[in-house]
């Protein structure tokens, strides 16, 4: 089974996000990118399938600041191939990114494409589902508990309240992975360094795909701090005393 995992690099939400001068996008000059957490789950799930049933795992990512590190890390974790897609604008929409991924993946011999279920910058939809549309194959997203038996896969699609629907699917298919069967593994730094020395990443120049998403951002902004929380100040002792008081008032 050949599994392709397109991973998305997204701005690190722990950093302060600033808006650009014309107020239509993030200020991207000093952004730091990291792997979308759900893509990490997609890599893990692909590697679990590889270990249990044998599979080839190819990870592909559109070039951003941290792409090399993310791809080398995936190789260090056990992926077989890593492909860097270049030429796609940083501010590209999800449709554009999906189209670029499609251009690369359509030419590959794949059975299953596993993407992260969603990403923090998906203004115009989720990459996996859009990619499936461009590839002309079906997609099930919000998936966990994947299992493989021969040529079919069984997947669980999560609804709310812990309810799930079970589907049997036949490749070729795209799965939007919500959670891998176990917490994504870490790759030892020494192993990543060794891979970086020994391996050259494959590169494919795609360039901006010609997709008109049909909408434009008029305004991007930090939500106004409505009422917001009353922030409790002072030492941790002071804050603890104040919270204890609030809780006791509510309990009595």
């Amino acid at each position: 089974m050949n599994i392709v995992v397109p991973v998305k690099l997204v701005p690190d939400l722990v950093e302060e996000l600033e808006i650009n001068d014309d107020g239509t996008d993030l200020e991207r000059d000093f952004l730091s990118y990291k792997i979308n957490e759900f893509c990490d789950h997609a890599i893990e799930e692909a590697l679990q399938i590889k270990e249990a049933h044998g599979a080839s795992v190819t990870v592909i990512a559109i070039e951003r600041d941290e792409t090399d590190k993310v791809l080398y890390t995936a190789l260090a974790k056990g992926a077989d191939r890593a492909v860097k897609v270049t030429g796609v604008d940083e501010a590209a929409t999800t449709h554009t990114a999906a189209k670029a991924m499609c251009t690369v993946i359509a030419g590959m011999d794949y059975d299953v494409v596993m993407t992260g279920v969603q990403a923090a910058d998906d203004r115009d939809g989720q990459l996996g589902i859009l990619l499936a549309g461009y590839l002309g194959v079906p997609c099930v997203s919000v998936v966990s508990d994947v299992s493989v038996s021969g040529d079919t896969l069984t997947v669980h699609k999560e609804y709310s309240g812990g309810m799930m629907a079970r589907y049997e699917v036949t490749p070729k298919i795209v799965l939007g992975v919500q959670a891998a069967r176990q917490t994504p593994r870490y790759a030892p730094v020494s192993r990543v360094r060794q891979i970086m020395k020994e391996t050259e990443l494959e590169e494919v120049l795609v360039g901006d795909a010609d997709v008109d998403v049909g909408s434009t951002v008029r305004r991007m902004y930090t939500p106004e701090k409505g009422e917001g929380a009353e922030m409790l100040e002072g030492s941790s002792e002071d804050v603890a005393a104040r919270i204890a008081q609030l809780l006791n008032e509510k309990r009595s």
Partner: peptide, 12 residues
Amino acid sequence: LYGGKIYAESAS
């Protein structure tokens, strides 16, 4: 967007 940190107003 961005985990609730940013809002984007889009027009089509």
